[in-house]
Design a protein around this nucleic acid. Structure first.
Lengths: 326, 326
DNA sequence: AACCGGGGCGAAAATATCTTTCATGAGTGA
DNA sequence: TCACTCATGAAAGATATTTTCGCCCCGGTT
């Protein structure tokens, strides 16, 4: 009973007087069920928003699931040089009701790792790695990113976002830099199934357009950091105009979520000097966007199928006739 | 402290105080290590020697590991119509120090079973797939695409392409539609490490620019079909002007390769109605492009590293300062 | 049929473990 | 510098687990 209550309290009271009063984004914080194998991903996603002590705990947990599963709260607290309270807080942050459940998940994770593949060791890409290693490492990392993202995606939020998109009279997508390309990708796809969508990279134009939106429209912001002002502003404008707003971000607690009815979390993986964060965040974002697209296509199948076929046909003309067409 | 002590005590009779003083619990009290996944077997083996109540508990545990893992001693006792003591006795009989550890093992078992069911998603995405399946299938497919691409990449060609890019005075990248986004992605990255690169989506402008190229410059065309005229034309122009030309295509025998000094092959995976080819080709292309980028970054490390750092710094300013920054 | 061990068994005490509360101090912005 | 916020851990407060203890069922014996 208090269970539920305490959970809600954990979900950051902070900023949102506006948000709070509006009372939207109800689904925001705690809807996610405890993760099974998505734990490592979740740790990475949430790590930035953690305090130092909690990070230590999270690190220990992610680094040695099996070992930590064998420890009691007190044990883990001692190991990480923190207190029981901190351990419990971390468990909560990771989406579990308490340490006990985190421990259970840890045991599960350990078992999976054990039975699964042993060689999960990824070294960073080094300056003198031969090109073949670069290919292998990059491919592996991106695969990992995909797995993490898929595991960490909240299907409820995703479903809600899909529903909103499918029903939208019009959709605006905001993204800057690398995220801008993802925004365009989504837009291209939506257009192909006959929906009305626009991607905006220019902040001013984005806001200008956003204020045109109203209930029944959808605004979708893509930002890895979750705090890209140029993207938040248009989303906010749309939010205040009553449009349904969606955020695709790697920081589920970032400012952007204040104005988002639905938050889709992308995974954050360790970056290195030669592998900028942009790379994995892009992969992650694209997967999310693809899921959105396919979801929408399913929902609007009757309209989408012919549209897809038509655009396929149209394109075929642009390419020389080559074999392989069934 | 009591932790260790009590646990050792739990280890029962046998070795007693010696074990306790050592404080290891790895091997536990008895000789048998707790079972990992051999639990079901153990239950069957030991069932005959169990009392009626214990059998009920064992049965429940073997029948629904996941479900039981979610229960407390009391819960499981109630479920099986027995008492806590019996549950603990059963756990002991199965080789665990207590119920807590049995529960942990149960969680592990459940996780294993769950993950074992993974490769059931080889099917195409159907119109009525639940959203969770869509996510799983898409992630799986893209992972597959990455693996295929990595496996099929010719590292010699890749190395040559990297060398050309790293040495290029200027690089033009051509791509249309979805490939255009990939082209932009590459361009963005190259710019970030201080190289001069442009992406062209407009065929006319592309050709106009291509004729400016000459030996020492690089032109890179991205086209899945390998026969997109709008992309081939500028590549051809560049080729004829003596620039080094690279093609990233899914058709290593397509027209585009005629004018390419180096051909990088992207993988083509099966597409379906709801999963257009563009999706996997994009994933594939991006991996190739990432490899190119990292390769170039390696080769130009002295210049690239500071440039990357600088652009990182510059971006940090655009985002609000949030905590978690070490 | 009555009596007598021998255990299986569960209620409840005892203990360990987990959770919550609360006071403190470190860091931060004005 | 001061007020303020918030992270943090100590310890109190709940729960969960383990242990204790003896009932009572079951078979065998006289």
């Amino acid at each position: 009973m208090k269970e539920t209550f305490s959970r809600a309290a954990g979900g950051r009271t902070a900023s949102g007087d506006h948000t709070a009063s509006v009372g939207r984004r109800a689904t925001g914080g705690g809807s996610a069920p405890p993760a099974p194998a998505a734990l490592a991903a979740k740790v990475r996603t949430l790590a930035p928003s953690m305090t130092r002590s909690m990070q230590r705990v999270a690190e220990a947990v992610a680094g040695d699931p099996a070992g930590c599963a064998a420890l009691t709260v007190t044990g883990l607290a001692e190991l990480t040089g923190t207190s029981e309270a901190t351990v419990v807080r971390t468990a909560r942050l990771l989406g579990y009701p308490g340490y006990r459940d985190l421990r259970l998940a840890l045991a599960g994770l350990a078992a999976q790792q054990q039975s699964g593949r042993a060689p999960a060791i990824t070294t960073d890409i080094a300056v003198d790695d031969p090109i073949a290693d670069v290919v292998a490492k990059l491919a592996y990392d991106e695969q990992q990113t995909l797995a993490d993202t898929a595991a960490g995606l909240d299907t409820v939020q995703l479903g809600a976002a899909v529903a909103a998109l499918a029903a939208a009279r019009r959709t605006d997508v905001y993204g800057i830099g690398a995220s801008g390309l993802v925004a365009q990708d989504l837009t291209q796809k939506l257009l192909r199934i006959g929906l009305i969508a626009h991607a905006h990279s220019d902040p001013h134009l984005a806001v200008t357009n956003a204020v045109q939106l109203r209930s029944g429209d959808v605004a979708l912001a893509i930002t890895h950091s979750g705090s890209t002002g140029d993207v938040i502003e248009p989303l906010r404008a749309a939010f205040e105009r009553g449009a349904t707003t969606i955020a695709v971000t790697g920081r589920p607690d970032g400012p952007v979520t204040q104005y988002a009815d639905h938050v889709l979390t992308t995974s954050t993986s360790r970056e290195s000097e030669l592998r900028p964060a942009a790379m994995s965040s892009r992969t992650s974002q694209l997967l999310v966007v693809d899921c959105l697209f396919v979801g929408v296509a399913q929902r609007t199948y009757d309209a989408a199928a012919p549209a897809l076929a038509a655009s396929y046909e149209a394109l075929a003309h642009r390419h020389g006739a080559h074999r392989g067409r069934p």
